[in-house]
């Protein structure tokens, strides 16, 4: 199955390769052998219904699930046995489901919190240039920001760290259309700057124009892989899988 679902294989362009990944939360077996890869500079979406295992896949890459087995190569390095905080230092930025803004920290403290994991991260001024709202609200407690501001902050704070592989979980969820549009523009800008992005999305219409490739997850397995060019011809199958 891995041969059919993974994209073109090349070790020096590959940022992330997940093979035979199983993961558990306590007794419950949530991932049943996930296989996919992401090349440098690519935007890849993980689609699927609620509970299919998309969020768990991102969490498993960071070691945030319970027990894991299989292989997760980040930049050519095996990470399946590493503790969570060391995985981040291989150059991964994580934007969790529901944003994970710290209520007891100010907006600026949230922005400055994640440690730098590699050189070449954005300067704080550059980030404020990209998200002017955050500059205005920098002294506000994290809990006082609007949903849109929190989402901007959750993305902004991982741009500072020099991470080149961004794992974004449901960034469009629960936001007004105008903010979702702004987020789409942000993703395009980041792609143009060479960031590698894995996005978990419920909102297919948001992901479709952004991602180079789409993986569909069902019952903890990758069941379909579709490139951008194949989208129009494969819509029938995607409708069937996603119910969109």
């Amino acid at each position: 199955m891995s041969g059919a679902t993974t994209g073109p294989l090349s070790t020096d362009t590959e940022m992330l390769r997940v093979a035979g990944l199983h993961a558990f939360y306590g007794e419950s077996h949530v991932l049943h052998g996930i296989d996919f890869n992401v090349n440098r500079g690519e935007v890849v979406s993980l689609l699927g219904r609620n509970g299919a295992g998309r969020t768990s896949t991102l969490r498993a890459v960071l070691g945030l699930t319970g027990q894991r087995s299989g292989s997760i190569m980040v930049n050519g390095r095996e990470t399946i046995t590493l503790p969570t905080h060391q995985i981040a230092h291989l150059g991964i930025g994580y934007c969790p489901e529901e944003r994970g803004i710290f209520a007891s920290l100010s907006a600026e403290e949230n922005l400055l919190l994640p440690p730098v994991v590699a050189g070449g991260g954005m300067a704080v001024e550059e980030i404020y240039g990209m998200f002017p709202n955050l500059h205005e609200r920098r002294r506000s407690p994290g809990s006082r920001l609007s949903g849109g501001e929190q989402q901007m902050l959750a993305i902004a704070r991982i741009l500072r760290t020099g991470a080149r592989l961004l794992l974004l979980d449901e960034i469009s969820e629960g936001l007004a259309p105008v903010i979702v549009q702004a987020l789409g523009a942000t993703i395009r800008k980041l792609k143009a700057q060479g960031y590698t992005i894995v996005m978990v999305e419920q909102n297919f219409r948001f992901a479709a124009p952004l991602a180079d490739r789409h993986y569909v997850i069902e019952h903890g397995r990758i069941v379909e892989s579709v490139t951008k060019d194949e989208l129009s011809s494969r819509m029938g199958r995607l409708h069937e899988l996603l119910g969109v």
Partner: peptide, 25 residues
Amino acid sequence: TKLGSYLRAGTENPRLTQAFGVNVP
């Protein structure tokens, strides 16, 4: 301080703080 912000973040959400690369243990 910065160190204190790690501590407050770790108090609020230790797993996420660790996912950012802070050695929470």
